[in-house]
């Protein structure tokens, strides 16, 4: 059982968001798309039914916030997992096989990382067209290098340890050694990276929806809400602040979870 409160706090917050996303239609007080121009830009508490107010079209901010969890978390989990799978696979190949494989994959990573990520993602989505699939594809295509780089280094280190040699002397094939012997030792690093990557994916999705390149504009997203709130910040600060704070807390939760996992899973610190 991890004692680190960051794991519980970060993980707890993410679990809360996850539940909110799954049960969004049940728990949100209003339809997130329902407009009511008569009750536009109502401040929090002005109408008890709109707990944190309404936006310029009279839509309930809390309901939109809850529904926006769906896009954010879908992107976070799917994109980060796919980037993780691709990056881990290539990183392990490079780290274990070395030689020509390592040279090719490492150069590919170097070239990839030379592109500015945000610009590259905007470019990718512009080319692929908007939509959640494009956002996920953009994140995977850009961020697999984060996994590949670290997993490669970790695999290299593990491959030099004596248990790998012992497995070789037992006549195990290279594939067996890589996936049965080395992979379990690399998993802790992967889990930490995965958690951090989910936070990054949330930010990237927010950036893309902020500039209108994510899902269609009538689906509520945190980035989209921030963009809308920015225009009426002097009349209705709450439209901007609540999605901003939620975004901030979500990314913080993923990062804290990642840091907590790092401490908890690190075998050097455990002993």
């Amino acid at each position: 059982m991890p004692k680190d409160f960051r794991i519980w706090l970060g993980g707890g917050f993410i679990l809360l968001l996850l539940l909110a996303a799954i049960f969004a239609p049940l728990i949100s007080p209003f339809d997130p798309l329902e407009q009511d121009l008569l009750s536009a830009t109502m401040a929090p508490g002005q109408d008890p039914s709109h707990i944190i107010g309404t936006d310029s079209l009279g839509r309930d901010v809390l309901s939109r916030l809850i529904f926006a969890c769906r896009i954010a978390l879908t992107v976070a989990f799917v994109a980060a997992t796919l980037a993780c799978l691709a990056g881990t696979f290539l990183g392990m190949l490079a780290g274990y096989l070395g030689g020509w494989w390592d040279a090719t994959i490492s150069r590919l990573i170097d070239i990839w990382m030379a592109f500015p990520p945000v610009l590259l993602s905007i470019l990718l989505v512009a080319v692929l067209g908007t939509g959640i699939h494009s956002v996920i594809a953009a994140i995977v295509v850009i961020d697999w290098t984060r996994f590949a780089r670290v997993v490669r280094a970790e695999t290299q280190q593990q491959a030099r340890l004596e248990y790998t040699e012992a497995a070789t002397a037992l006549g195990m094939s290279r594939g067996t050694i890589l996936f049965r012997e080395i992979l379990p030792n690399v998993v802790p690093v992967i889990l930490v990276l995965l958690s951090l990557e989910m936070g990054i994916a949330v930010i990237v999705e927010a950036i893309l929806s902020f500039v209108g390149l994510s899902v269609s504009t009538d689906t509520p997203t945190w980035g989209g809400m921030i963009a809308e709130g920015r225009q009426i910040i002097y009349q209705a600060w709450w439209v901007l602040v609540f999605p901003l704070v939620t975004l901030f807390l979500t990314v913080l939760a993923f990062n804290q979870l990642g840091d907590g996992l790092r401490q908890w899973l690190d075998p050097m610190l455990k002993r």
Partner: peptide, 22 residues
């Protein structure tokens, strides 16, 4: 590789590092 383990095997030097910790 077919012979290793089956025909010839190794008792490694360091029992602390020769077993997979994970």
């Amino acid at each position: 590789r077919k012979m290793l383990g089956v025909r010839i095997a190794l008792i490694p030097q360091d029992p602390l590092t020769s077993l997979n910790p994970a």
